[in-house]
């Protein structure tokens, strides 16, 4: 039993090392003074030089701003459309065309990005030819493409949340005189809100991170941050990218750790309250 526990611990340790060593090394060398990045310049390091450089780089900052706008917009669009799709698929029972909707919502989860990219671009070209909209490629086309491929994730998250809670709750509200729209806003929506929020965050991250699809459907002047990074790192390592990566990792890590701790606390509080309720007199 003991050596099996040891085996488990060591495989986990190895796996986690595999996941984190590259990230940590990237962060470490962001404080390296040397242009060679991975050769540690012991005399002049650590330094914040590359961070200063980063914040002077208007092109990267501009691209980051574009990326934030696109990510926020498309995550919001995806949250709305994905929630609707999840609701339709779990609560509307069988209807004609349900299988197609279900297929269209799960396919983007695994569809290779190059295919999505090429398909979206050809659509935009054809649309522009036929109805003159969308005019050219830019923020709008990237946002539409991102909404389309991220809404699948929101749908999956919302669907599993909806499937997990008792539909008697909605029936009870109807039974007590609430009209279907009221039931949705007063009961269903508050209950699936956590799923919608995590779906939104997921969509934001995926959009913020996407390079392939953006590359296909972007136009002049609409380079996103990942596109800028990609064109730089294709030419090799560069120290200011390390600095950028460090900042991004730290932001995400803080967010994830904080939310995990918060959820854990909520859970513990709830468990305690439930325990107290059980020991109450009936």
């Amino acid at each position: 039993m003991n050596d099996r526990g040891l085996f488990r611990k060591s495989i986990l340790g190895l796996g986690l090392a595999f996941l984190y060593v590259p990230i940590l090394s990237m962060m470490f060398f962001s404080f390296n003074n040397s242009r060679l990045v991975t050769v540690w310049d012991a005399e002049n390091s650590p330094t914040l030089r590359w961070y200063v450089r980063l914040f002077e780089n208007e092109q990267l900052l501009g691209a980051a701003w574009i990326s934030i706008k696109i990510a926020a917009l498309s995550a919001s669009g995806a949250a709305i459309l994905g929630t609707l799709a999840g609701l339709v698929l779990t609560r509307f029972g069988p209807f004609r065309g349900r299988a197609l909707l279900s297929a269209m919502t799960t396919a983007p989860l695994v569809m290779p990005e190059v295919i999505m990219g090429i398909a979206m671009l050809l659509l935009f070209v054809a649309l522009e030819q036929m109805i003159g909209w969308p005019e050219g490629r830019g923020l709008l086309t990237i946002t539409i493409a991102h909404v389309t491929f991220t809404m699948a994730y929101v749908t999956v998250v919302v669907q599993s949340r909806l499937a997990g809670f008792d539909d008697a709750l909605e029936e009870a509200a109807l039974d007590l005189g609430a009209k279907p729209a009221t039931v949705f806003f007063k009961i269903t929506l508050p209950l699936i809100m956590p799923a919608i929020v995590s779906g939104w965050l997921l969509a934001f991250t995926l959009s913020w991170d996407d390079v392939v699809i953006s590359q296909f459907v972007s136009g002049p002047g609409s380079s996103t941050l990942p596109m800028e990074i990609f064109s730089r790192v294709r030419r090799g390592v560069s120290p200011d990218i390390n600095a950028l990566a460090t900042i991004m990792v730290l932001i995400v890590a803080t967010g994830v750790v904080a939310s995990t701790i918060w959820m854990k606390r909520q859970e513990r509080k709830r468990a305690l309250e439930e325990q107290m309720a059980r020991s109450d007199t009936p």
Binding site: I229, M248, V256
Partner: peptide, 24 residues
Amino acid sequence: LMLIILPFWTSFLLRVYAWIGLLK
């Protein structure tokens, strides 16, 4: 689980980039 998911939330592109620094 959090440790497994955490890298997923950080940029995919930058995580691939990190390997250039390790492997070159």
